[in-house]
């Protein structure tokens, strides 16, 4: 087991180093002068040149890269050319909002998608299955932002049951920062009203963000559960009178859930990417929006830092998932 995790860690580090090299050079070879873009058309040539000197853009790439790595391991990614803050400070300010969104969307995706898949397989070809099928089809066929606008229109604008945008109502102050996740911080501080308000704010963006992944997880779980139900070990369970509930949630589910878990890692990371659209629509002050703005403005340091952050997140999530899978699938665990 330790060997297995160590192997995963090593390959994770390789992925992160690879991404860092790729991103670092990519950011420097794409056309456009970052200093000019940052300072605007009004700046004089001397000012632009001064900034280029200051950022070290004249040095050889390898030297620049080594300096970058030296900073990055200390969580120092340099200054943003645009906000003029240290990039790490910008990320610290925006990442918790995105993380909170991704956690909620990830939970919705896994739990609702999984439950839909299980129910679909259990009631195969009956109404719960058929409605889940239509729902998944719609969730995949309509892009995130359409769903986001659609949900906003119905639940916020017409029915008024959920707030339209933002992380918190303006009348409320953010809870004392501890994790940066408003819902969690509010619970820690015991501020119920803030918790409920933050929860109400996150429902719509999280649901809109989760839908494509939710549909995919539901379909995959259904397929594998249906396959599982046809296997002799389920007939065995029935022949020995195991309760139908334990067949659905244990004996048939456990073997069927492995492929779902395997794509879960990728789905969660995809949430980070898709978060940009949702963050923009819901005015969610998150890192995805920050990252896309950095790319548009060619804010080199911010761009590289955000991508590094996402790749570290990806590696961590996948290690977590791999560990989980190895606990559930003995064939993987025993081979390791």
């Amino acid at each position: 087991m330790t060997k297995f995790l160590l192997g995963r860690l090593v390959s994770g580090v390789i992925v992160i180093v690879g991404v860092s090299i790729f991103m670092f050079f990519l950011a420097r070879v794409i056309p456009g002068d970052p200093a000019r873009l940052a300072l605007g058309p009004e700046a004089s040539a001397a000012q632009v040149e001064a900034m280029r000197q200051q950022m070290g853009f004249h040095e050889p790439y390898v030297e620049q890269y080594l300096r970058f790595v030296g900073g990055a391991v200390n969580f120092d990614f340099g200054r943003s050319l645009y906000t003029d803050n240290p990039v790490s400070q910008d990320i610290a300010a925006t990442f918790p909002a995105t993380l909170e969104l991704v956690i909620f969307a990830g939970l919705a995706m896994t739990l609702i998608g999984g439950a839909m898949g299980i129910a679909s397989a259990h009631f195969k070809d009956r109404w719960p299955d058929n409605s889940a099928r239509i729902l998944s089809l719609l969730a995949v066929a309509m892009p995130n932002f359409v769903w986001a606008l659609f949900l906003m229109l119905i639940l916020s604008f017409w029915l008024g049951v959920l707030p339209l945008t933002g992380r918190l109502s303006e009348s409320l102050a953010a809870p004392p920062a501890f994790t940066g996740l408003y819902t969690v911080d509010a619970l820690i501080a015991g501020e119920w009203q803030v918790f409920l308000d933050a929860l109400a704010h996150i429902v719509l963006p999280a649901v809109a963000l989760s839908l494509p992944g939710l549909a995919q997880i539901s379909r995959l779980t259904r397929t594998n559960m249906v396959d599982s139900y046809d296997r002799p070990f389920v007939e065995f369970a029935r022949a020995y009178g195991f309760p139908e509930r334990s067949i659905a949630l244990k004996w048939a589910l456990r073997p069927a859930i492995i492929p779902t878990l395997m794509i879960l890692g990728m789905q969660i990371v995809a949430l980070l990417g898709n978060a940009f659209i949702v963050e923009t629509i819901f005015h969610w002050p998150g890192m995805a929006k920050y990252g896309v703005n950095a790319i548009v403005r060619k804010d080199l340091n911010a761009m590289v830092a955000v991508v590094m952050f996402i790749s570290v997140f990806f590696v961590l999530i996948n290690m977590l998932i791999d560990t989980l899978v190895s606990f559930i699938d003995p064939k993987i665990r025993l081979k390791a």
Binding site: P232, F233, Y240, W251, P255
Partner: peptide
Amino acid sequence: TMIFQDPMAALNPV
């Protein structure tokens, strides 16, 4: 009770 044709398949792999 019942015994099945392929014992390997009738026992749950996980």
